[in-house]
Design a protein around this nucleic acid. Sequence first.
DNA 1: CTGAAAGCGCTAACAG
DNA 2: CTGTTAGCGCTTTCAG
Lengths: 356, 356
Amino acid sequence: MGVTIHDVARAAGVSVASASRALSGRRKVTPEVAERVTRAAAELGYQPNAVAKALRDRTTGTVGMVVPGIGNPFFTTMVEAVEHQLQKSGRDLLLCASQYTPEIEARRLNTLLARRVDGLIISPCDFEASAPAVLNAARQVPLVQVDRYIEGGGADWVGVDDDSALAQAVDHVVAGGARSVVFVSSRLMNSSARLRLAGFQLATARAGVDSGAPLLGEFTLDWGFEAGRRLLADGTLPDAVICGNDEIAVGLLRALRLGGVRVPEEVSVVGFDDVGHATMCDPPLTTVRQPVEEMAAEVVRLLGQVRVSDPRPAQRLAIAPRLVVRETSRPVTSGADTIAAAGIVAGNGQEEEEVA
Amino acid sequence: MGVTIHDVARAAGVSVASASRALSGRRKVTPEVAERVTRAAAELGYQPNAVAKALRDRTTGTVGMVVPGIGNPFFTTMVEAVEHQLQKSGRDLLLCASQYTPEIEARRLNTLLARRVDGLIISPCDFEASAPAVLNAARQVPLVQVDRYIEGGGADWVGVDDDSALAQAVDHVVAGGARSVVFVSSRLMNSSARLRLAGFQLATARAGVDSGAPLLGEFTLDWGFEAGRRLLADGTLPDAVICGNDEIAVGLLRALRLGGVRVPEEVSVVGFDDVGHATMCDPPLTTVRQPVEEMAAEVVRLLGQVRVSDPRPAQRLAIAPRLVVRETSRPVTSGADTIAAAGIVAGNGQEEEEVA
DNA sequence: CTGAAAGCGCTAACAG
DNA sequence: CTGTTAGCGCTTTCAG
């Protein structure tokens, strides 16, 4: 360690200024100087100190990202997509997990801020409890929320159009003949859980089908399994179950199979996310696919537009998802298949709305 | 942004030195000064600039970690465990994925080095191709490898004792009556794949059972599924299949079920890792559990002992794993169960060996 | 085109 | 106990 630009300059017989210019290429130097500096740097194994550069430039080339947990395949997929987008502009990602805990989340935001990230991407773990820390961070640095958001609309957000998603899911099972459908999801402590439940209720009301009390727990395999057991214990199974994410769906599927229930003959199951193991579970899962790459692209695009000094109204970008039909849902019966087809087509657009 | 310690000092009517001392508490100041500084800092919303501190201290309080991919649950589990350990000493983790590509890996190592991380934890994606970049990094900063390592033993490593692991797995299925067993794993481009295959061959030879040609592809669900199809296509199934990781095992299980093969009645299946969905697949997977928390603890302990300036011989720490018997393997028959029991007991120790 | 020098924000001597 | 000052490594005016 420890070879600085001074060492390079000395070895090349020029001033540090020239060395800096030659190395960065941001200003003209004689070809000969350029050559000497480049060689000296190579010979000494010079590696620029990004910390010093950051201090001087007041910018780190770094974006912080905070997600609830990296155990959830949806978030890891999103992280990879964001990293991929950032790479295009040569920036790096600092990744943190809040472990679904607002206190840890706040601490993570603060250390990211202390490290002077140029921007922040966050999926706040709690609709209410995350708000103060997120708002505070948004005041210091460009920030955009992804997937989940905090109450009050104080910061930009990119996510999926949950109303469209649930409408597609509900219409699809209804087209398959379902008359009763229940929703298994997470408790309402984050925006996704709220929006999806609302979308579900809207869609079932409009379709005029029977929706029992929703089963609300966590976005986990375990909860899906547990919910499946409860459904079985109830004695009277619904025609279809729509799940808040794929983890839940896979757990539920397993409980159902253990209970001797045939899917999709006796009950249809629809998931949400289409990341990870949806194609490999048994039977392959019908699910709503989140347009993760698109979302990631929008997130970094938005991040580049945010100006902390001159705030504009917060933007919300809800990208319409697409239902992917596999084998856990009954095939469409009768002429109703036009509905499902329409749902798929409608899912390709993109909506933009502004929020007060 | 932009409230510095100078602002705080001025507001408190003291020098920057006193402000710094009061804030850090690393030196005595009058209670009154302490009080005034603290209040000024709070009122101004002062947030120390970690970049400046890092430049001054020549240490960032940051450890970089590079794993092949965060899509693999084993690595995410390991990352979480490492983060957890690091937190105890107040350090932060900078996480990068090499995407199983040596070039990306090398680039990631360099930006981490440029950002002056205090240490590096890496699971090199390729046994050979990763070596130059890893060795170069190890020359600049304390570095410990985890799970995978590069050829030549030039850097510390913490991992699992694959010989013990495979011996336990093989002895277990043999105790259940298996006479032929095949190994499904990854191609040999990383150390884990090599060690596990070697361990498998050793164990089957010692047990005197028939091991066909190993099926080597990738550490993925898809490969497991594909391998299952090939086994089925062969017409003659082995009594047991041992897999290089759980992803493979889950994919294999699915192919087998689709092919109408009953597990474990017709063939036993054993996985490796015991992270993620091993308990939730159907039937629950018998697998070798990696002691992830222990490994993470050893990694950060070792990291604190490495001195770049005064290198000591590279250490290798192979922690013995434990076989977790669930429902994809046949129960032990006859008196042979003493073997399996011995395997489990032997698996609780910890071995340390030094490498040339 | 090149060099000298200032300064990013912070902490640790070094005096007082 | 407190203040002044140097300097971490870098880039960028500002003169020449």
